[in-house]
Design a protein around this nucleic acid. Structure first.
Lengths: 207, 207
DNA sequence: GTCTATACAAGGATAGAC
DNA sequence: GTCTATCCTTGTATAGAC
């Protein structure tokens, strides 16, 4: 079994930066590769090459591929959560904050680094690797539901808009928007999906 | 280069059925494995075992993994399109047909067999394999846009509902719903995402 | 901590017998 | 058409020297 904690030399440089320690560089390389190629498509060799580390070095810092993946996924999940919370807990009305989150700048054609893991059977089959994926997306739906509930409470949104249900719709539009954009090789479908949702959400209530 | 045409012995049995020809069984096995494990995660060996065919047999019928994958993807794309069109061109008002399509029975936890290929870098990197993915999802958006345009024309939907834009939203909710369901290990988030969308779509227009 | 050597299964395919 | 033998590369890791 491998644990969530990773031994990383204390390092004042930014994570993964040019002067980062070897362990950090390995984690950053793994993050990139998981995002691009998924778990199955990512080999230890490829990680080592991208990190500029040797075989022995990698296995000194990490027990193997699953442990490295866990470190990578955990770090990515933390960042995703922090950025989402920054916008959803920021200034503005409820609908404005949800809109800001939907419209925030994204690397659309690369897709969601957490959502994509959902398609990786080896990740989903391993409870340890799966947990951060499940938790992150679960948290996001919950946080969005809170904001939507605010909006309903203060009359921005009609009573027909169930917060939990609508939160699922919002996250689904993002995750699905990535799929459409990648299929089309173009960010347009993503932007359209988001625009369509915002239009439906912001439509003035029936008098 | 491999082509889209596949030599399949004329066979009165259902495709992939118990008495299907070897070529058909290979294609069916490939379809299953692509759906479950993606392109990178699917080996020729695994295909042969699932199809009950030997090495030599497989390479007699197909030039290699990419050609098999193309046959599998093409068949899956055709089925997806036929089923969607059946509902979208069926009876009922525009909103009813879109709702019927959204609510149709699905193997939610397995996800979309076409959408998932979007996450496979080796598929997306190959124009031949990529084309059916791009076309199928593009066609679906277009067909939905037509139905939504009908709905707007006859007053079911308000003028604010742009058909193309909303079609992207509809497909995104489905594709993203799969992601959420798989992450949660539960079909609920999918159903919620769909319900949320239908609620927003069917909301009576402001007087 | 990092390097090199070694190991062995699996991926992906070809050759030629039957 | 199908089977077996063979081939080379890559995936994933261990062992031990430096």
């Amino acid at each position: 079994m491998y644990s969530a904690a990773v031994n990383v030399t204390v390092n004042t440089d930014a994570e993964g930066g040019p002067r980062a320690g070897t362990a950090d560089r390995l984690v950053e390389a793994t993050r990139d590769l998981l995002w691009e190629r998924g778990y199955t498509g990512t080999s230890p060799r490829a990680i080592q090459q991208r990190a500029g580390a040797g075989q022995g070095s990698m296995y000194h810092h990490f027990a193997g591929k699953p442990e490295l993946a866990l470190a990578a996924i955990t770090r990515t999940a933390g960042e995703l959560r922090a950025r989402a919370d920054g916008l959803l807990s920021g200034p503005g009305t409820a609908v404005e904050r949800v809109t800001a989150y939907l419209r925030r700048e994204r690397d659309v054609l690369r897709g969601c680094p957490i959502g994509r893991l959902t398609q990786d059977p080896d990740v989903m089959a391993d409870p340890v690797l799966r947990a951060p994926v499940e938790q992150t997306l679960g948290w996001l739906r919950g946080r969005l539901a809170e904001v939507l509930a605010e909006g309903r409470a203060n009359g921005e949104l009609p009573p027909s808009v169930d917060p939990s249900v609508t939160a699922a719709t919002v996250v689904a539009v993002l995750q699905g928007g990535y799929v459409l954009a990648r299929a089309a090789g173009d960010t347009d479908p993503f932007d359209q999906a988001v625009t369509g949702l915002i239009t439906l959400l912001a439509r003035p209530r029936p008098a």
